[in-house]
Design a protein around this nucleic acid. Structure first.
Length: 788
DNA sequence: GTAGGGTTAG
């Protein structure tokens, strides 16, 4: 054998061994490295095709350094090795280097494949415009676009907006160049039409494809799914002779995203019985279906099935499956199970971390959430959004705002969801100025058309007492969803505009927006605040009959509340006994509150006892019971209720009121001695009260909840936190400005009376938000009509 | 040496 023949034989053997490195996995990289080092050890110098192969394998294993090292040894690299390396750079995200390589390659050695590779590079980096640009240059440089070119350019087009024209032009070119005979090109065209939402064109083209492959079917089916035409998609899938798992998976996830959970589960079951392979994708979708639909038992069954299937080793490593399981368990109130999944995961990603964080936050386990947040190795927008809105929703408004600012100081631009969280923090705090500033920032950033931020603003203005601003926003928002309508109805309700709230509800129906369970909660609250008994019963009966929404315990509780406030205790009792489930805390609390207002001590005691049984650590029930006794003058019983509370180590939430003055929040406690200007406040009140008395104000000492001497009672009354905050605001706000005060508990009856006279004396509007609703005092009247 | 489909967190 001649020397050159020998070398050729060895080279061929190496080449066939390298062939084993495809398709590319991590293992193939080490195999390639083994083969390569074998060559080096035996003094064999790869050249030509073999060298290209090595560069290609290294490129495809993302080992650019190895590939580049070999590449640099070639004096005049040919177009094949250039293509391999160029693609490797693009796929690693380094488009700049790829582009440099492209430009440095002389026109004389370029070919169509080389152009195609660069177009692929742009496409993978989501730069559709550059795809088109290079395609045009390719034509100018007089290279023939082939089927690969069109598939890639059309694929890259997916990311471009307003592409209908380009799409039609490319379609024409496809027909002109004869590439329309390739199924791959037609599939890509169908895909772009789908992407433009032009399902009619997509379907027409699909029907014309002579030899449809798996991808043709999948593209059209997923196209319908993406454009929310699930029934059309289903019809195609049912008519398919081949049972393509991909199409079925697309259907299942489509159903899940449209909240059509029954159909998703049916499809999954059918898949199982028909013997279609259930892979990671199907499991992920069906588990996420169970999570969203609250199907705990089915979800658990699927989980067990995952554990038993022979594919378990792969599924154990599957991020999406594990992430979906985390979500399943935390949404079914099993945060600790979710955590266990998380702890057992061999690899985790940002989705896993965010899911657990949401779990803690949604369960109100804020302390754990914050700890978890601080330990996260990586955070994205969603992480911050979850933490900020979680703090706001759990009553940590100040911390929510702090975190929002921290996010900004770390150089991150908050998105509309983060703004929504910060704005809800302002709602909590009653921080109107801060909320207004956030609104202004949103406008500056062009984010003011955002639904989530807009909805948060509606609530913020209402909860800060400026319901007119909510209304203005509601009327001018470019898009509205059911949350917006619910927010506006709630806003009107809280401010006592019950009739307007109901009118808005009717408008909502006329606008074709389906009410949900929240809508009915706000409707019932609005009725409660305005004393609309008949209306509340009417809507309560409507929700199930007309909208198929089964009333939950919260709905019953609201209706009980309405009835009790109107003194209809018999009806309330009937309603409670007609409930399909055991009454929980919310129902007893409503009953108890009504009993207190109407001095129905006997029923009230029963309710309070049940309530204390159900939630022994909640201070509210002891307080209500105690207050009720106090109202009836039974001071011993009142003291006993407080003693029971103390004995059980339950602490009363201290009453406090606050008010925003010059962008700063001032907090007052009862009998306050802490606020630096409190002495001035007391003397201001001392001047004001006699004037109020001249107009008929009589301090009502039955609201003093301690058994103390009569002459001291009036002094205690005048030191209530809400009186201090209102007086402070009257002193410090500009003349004539509306006073907006917030209280964490319900307003005291004497304060309520006093503010009516106060508003007359000072000739200003006083707005007080208490734990349940708003009171607008103007000209010795309150908007609640003394009904609260 | 170049292309294309289905999954998870608010």
């Amino acid at each position: 054998m001649k020397g050159s023949d020998f070398i050729r034989t060895v080279a061929n053997r190496y080449a066939s061994q390298l062939q084993l490195c495809y398709p590319q996995t991590l293992a193939s990289f080490s195999l390639a490295k083994t083969i390569h080092s074998h060559m080096i050890t035996f003094g064999f110098h790869p050249r030509g095709h073999l060298l290209n192969r090595l560069i290609d394998v290294y490129s495809k294993s993302s080992k650019i350094i190895y590939a580049r090292h070999l590449f640099d040894q070639i004096p005049e690299p040919d177009i094949a090795s250039r293509t391999s390396l160029l693609l490797a750079y693009s796929l690693s995200g380094d488009v700049k280097t790829a582009q440099k390589m492209f430009e440095e390659t002389p026109l004389s050695i370029r070919d169509s494949v080389f152009y195609n590779a660069m177009i692929t590079g742009y496409s993978r980096n989501e730069d559709g415009n550059s795809c088109i640009e290079l395609f045009r240059q390719m034509l100018r440089d007089e290279f023939r676009p082939d089927d690969f070119t069109f598939t890639t350019v059309l694929g890259g087009l997916a990311r471009v907006v307003n592409k209908v024209m380009q799409c039609k032009q490319l379609h024409g070119l496809v027909l002109k160049t004869g590439t329309g005979f390739f199924t791959s090109v037609l599939n890509a065209l169908v895909s772009v039409y789908v992407n433009c939402g032009l399902m009619f064109e997509a379907r027409k083209l699909f029907d014309e494809i002579y030899t449809k492959d798996e991808l043709s079917w999948t593209t059209i089916v997923t196209g319908y799914v993406r454009n929310d035409e699930l029934d059309a998609a289903r019809e195609l899938v049912d008519g398919m002779s081949e049972k393509l798992a991909v199409a079925w998976n697309a259907m299942i996830s489509g159903y899940v995203h449209c909240n059509r959970y029954d159909e998703a589960v049916d499809m999954f079951r059918k898949m199982y019985f028909m013997g279609i392979k259930i892979d990671e994708f199907a499991y992920t979708s069906v588990i996420s279906c169970c999570a969203n639909a609250g199907l705990f038992h089915l979800g658990k069954q699927v989980h067990c099935y995952v554990l038993r299937t022979e594919a378990k080793p792969t599924l154990d490593f599957s991020l999406p499956v594990n992430n979906a399981l985390i979500t399943l368990y935390y949404k079914c109130d099993k945060v600790d199970w979710a955590r266990q999944i998380f702890d057992n995961m061999p690899v985790r990603d940002i989705v896993s971390w965010n899911a657990i964080l949401s779990g803690y936050v949604n369960a109100g386990r804020i302390a754990e959430g914050r700890l978890f947040f601080s330990k996260m190795p990586e955070r994205n927008q969603l992480t911050w959004n979850v933490m900020i809105s979680g703090l706001a929703q759990n009553g940590f408004g100040e911390e929510g705002l702090k975190l929002f600012n921290q996010m900004k100081s770390e150089g991150l631009q908050p998105c509309d969801y983060a703004f929504a969280g910060a704005i809800s923090s302002c709602s909590m705090l009653g921080a109107l100025e801060n909320g207004r500033q956030l609104h202004a920032q949103l406008v500056r950033l062009g984010l003011d058309s955002s639904l989530s931020a807009g909805n948060a603003l509606i609530t913020m203005y209402a909860r800060c007492g400026v319901v007119e601003a909510s209304n203005l926003l509601f009327l001018t928002m470019p898009y509205l969803d059911s949350v917006s309508w619910n927010a506006m109805i709630a806003a009107l309700g809280q401010h006592g505009h019950g009739i307007q709230a109901l009118e808005l509800f009717e408008q909502m129906l006329e606008a074709g927006i389906s009410p949900d369970r929240i809508t009915f909660l706000t409707i019932l609250s609005a009725c409660s605040h305005a004393g609309l008994v008949k209306e509340s019963q009417y809507y309560f009966n409507l929700m199930d009959r007309l909208y198929g929404i089964t009333p939950g315990e919260d709905h019953y509780a609201r209706l009980v509340d309405v009835l009790c406030r109107a003194g209809k205790f018999l009806e309330a009792n009937d309603l409670i006994s007609s409930m399909p489930f055991e009454p929980g805390a919310a129902v007893w609390e409503a009953l108890l509150a009504g009993c207190r207002t109407h001095g129905n001590v006997d029923l009230g005691i029963q309710a309070a006892e049940r309530l204390i049984e159900l939630i022994p650590h909640h201070d509210g029930s002891y307080m209500l019971l105690s207050n009720m006794y106090a109202t009836a003058g039974r001071w011993n019983d009142a003291a006993n209720a407080r003693k029971l509370m103390r004995d059980r180590g339950v602490r009363k939430e201290p009453g406090c009121s606050w008010v925003e003055v010059e962008n700063k929040v001032h907090v007052f406690l009862v009998d306050d001695t802490v606020h630096p200007e409190v002495q001035a406040v007391y003397s201001y009140l001392n001047k004001l009260v006699p004037e109020m008395k001249r107009l008929g104000y009589v301090p009502d000492t039955k609201f003093v909840l301690h058994d103390i001497e009569a002459d001291q009672k009036e002094r205690v009354l005048s030191a209530h936190s809400e009186k201090l905050a209102v007086a402070f605001a009257l002193m410090r706000l500009p003349r004539g400005a509306t006073v907006r005060v917030f209280k964490n508990l319900r307003i005291c009856g004497d304060c309520h009376n006093a503010f009516k006279f106060m508003s007359k004396v000072v000739g200003r509007e006083i707005v007080v938000r208490d734990a349940k609703r708003f009171h607008h005092f103007r000209d010795s009247q309150c908007s609640c009509g003394d009904y609260w």
